[in-house]
Design a binder for these strands. Structure first.
Lengths: 346, 346
DNA sequence: TTGTAGGCGTTATCAG
DNA sequence: CTGATAACGCCTACAA
């Protein structure tokens, strides 16, 4: 009924628990026949070691913590996918927690995970995080950390990101080459790394193509698009400016969809009146009205790499003696919301 | 550096570990002053109990396992959301694993979770699962189980589902009332509960409105829509029949999107030539081309209820002496893919 | 009211 | 080559 233990096996085979343990750990310093006997019996009774006992003994939980803004989002769920696959393959399980884009919950989760004694933590920062002290406090205590996608702007940490500068540069360039002159950029709060990098790519493209950067065409969304009211107010405000934009570059899933929705409501012709490029990993971008030109981040691969690095950090910290900073390329999927082969009629 | 233990506190305060333990557990059988002293000190040094030790002692892991087909899917990620929130609030963490719609990986995950000594398991079955023996074997050993959404067709188990019959009935009725006569149903393999129930709702609506059920208008997808090749072959086949349908009712996220994509490719007018209703929790259903009439399941609530029930089962099994079978209502979001207020031009 | 001792399951060290 | 012992951190009879 209750799980078989080493003690049970020892009793059944008239051996000591140490011998059984040795056999199970496949030690070479023992009689091969004894070993075989133990292994066979263990197999027969379907023995599997109690992970809590192993963990207690080794002071390792074989668990990694994950803190991210939200789960129900194409980018993050693909990211989890990559993380889970790698973690699982290495015998780790993943404890997921969501910050819901608030700093308070993020710190709560951090405390929860450390009290859970996870062996390492993966983080994608909330849009409201400015103070990294709680993270550094844990790092100083030796907890391995890897940041993914939304990483700290400064400080020595391990990070896995996608090439936000390049992605944003290419998206902007694409719009410019289509003749757009007043390209607006809708993005997350300033203090996020992704914001800075995407903004920089956007600016550089303008510069390279002799368009002047206009501050009034950049809108920062405090909640990164998570609050519908803020989205509507700001986007309508942008479109109602005296000199409205002729194209939008939205820097997040939610901002992209909010923009599209508002363009629909205003019955604007896309891309003639207003072109739209958005960062999104949603699989149905091509089925939207109109099919959406999208910046697609390599979410699954980012998850894989992040988990891989974290597990290396956990298992052989000395091997990784420099701070890693891996940058994976994004894709620009060009569709009708910019090239407009199919007219959108509302 | 290393975490504070009860022993550390005992030493610092010149007490025995049992006294410290008692204070921490807020025992009444002790000197209030001693208790206060311990509590204050524990607070000061930021003591938190080692969960592995607690788990080993109590033989409870405070973890629940979750097996589902995939994470990167709007329905399942919302489901996880609900589960996580409830679990977290009760001090449990969730170990997620994906079957990727195969039976083999599902059984692997089951074994992994039980070797991990999770306190209970939540399952949404893969589309290929027919043999429930591995589940029942574990149940017989006392492992609490709750099934969600894709639940076993027979056998005494706890289940949380949405009202598939009603949802499907209403969707079909909606199509009939719009004048559709040849409504096709695209669905998962026959042995899934959701398939049977959705098929039954579909049939009943036809019956109630004097339309005859035609076997050739029902298509079962072995992989539940996960394999693009099967999707295309089957859907094109359906549309190429001598008497093609005039409406589609797709019973899963992937089948819905695959259908829409193929209708696009064939330049069909939706809903005039072909109406489409699909089961999907994708937030952007309203931004699709055309905006999609969707059956939306209460994924978050299903997750909450499932986690709540499982935790009850774990913590007070005697309280739940009957098999629960909770059925939550779905929503039908009616949009242009059926009522066609906005023409779709390709 | 507090302390001692033993055990949860495992493994490493040290004897034999 | 095998066995006894102790320890990981916590809790709880039982003893004082």
């Amino acid at each position: 009924m209750s799980p078989v233990t080493i003690k049970d096996i020892a009793r059944a085979l008239n051996l000591s628990t140490s011998t059984v343990s040795r056999a199970l750990r496949d030690s070479s310093e023992m009689n091969p026949e004894t070993k075989k006997m133990v292994l066979d019996y263990a197999q027969k009774v379907n023995y599997s070691p109690n992970p809590m006992a192993v963990s207690l003994r080794a002071s390792k939980s074989k668990a990694i913590g994950l803190i991210l803004p939200e789960i129900a989002n194409a980018f993050f769920s693909q990211l989890i996918n990559g993380i889970e696959d790698v973690a699982y393959a290495h015998g780790y399980h993943v404890v997921i927690s969501q910050s819901h884009e608030t700093y308070e919950r993020e710190v709560n989760n951090l405390n929860y995970l450390s009290s859970r004694r996870v062996d390492g933590i993966l983080v994608s920062l909330s849009s409201l995080t400015t103070d990294l002290h709680p993270f550094h406090a844990l790092m100083d205590q030796g907890m391995p950390f890897v940041f993914v996608d939304r990483v700290p702007q400064q400080g020595q940490v391990h990070k896995i990101t996608s090439d936000n500068f390049e992605a944003s540069y290419n998206a902007t360039k694409h719009l410019i080459e289509l003749g757009k002159k007043r390209i607006a950029h809708l993005t997350s709060p300033r203090y996020l790394s992704i914001t800075t990098e995407r903004l920089a790519g956007y600016k550089k493209a303008l510069l390279d193509y002799d368009l002047t950067f206009k501050e009034e065409l950049v809108k920062y969304f405090h909640y990164g698009g998570a609050v519908a009211q803020e989205n509507e107010k700001t986007i309508h405000g942008l479109l109602d400016q005296v000199q409205p934009p002729d194209a939008l570059l939205a820097a997040s899933e939610r901002l992209t969809m909010a923009s599209l929705e508002i363009l629909h409501k205003r019955n604007m012709r896309i891309p003639e009146e207003m072109a739209l490029v958005g960062f999104t990993n949603n699989a149905v971008a091509g089925l939207l009205n109109p099919p959406l030109t999208a910046v697609v981040q390599p979410a699954y691969q980012m998850g894989e790499q992040a988990a891989k690095l974290l597990i290396e950090l956990i298992e052989s910290p000395q091997k990784v003696n420099e701070f890693q900073n891996l940058i994976l390329p994004s894709l620009l999927d060009i569709r009708s919301s910019t090239i407009g082969s199919k007219p959108f009629i509302s």
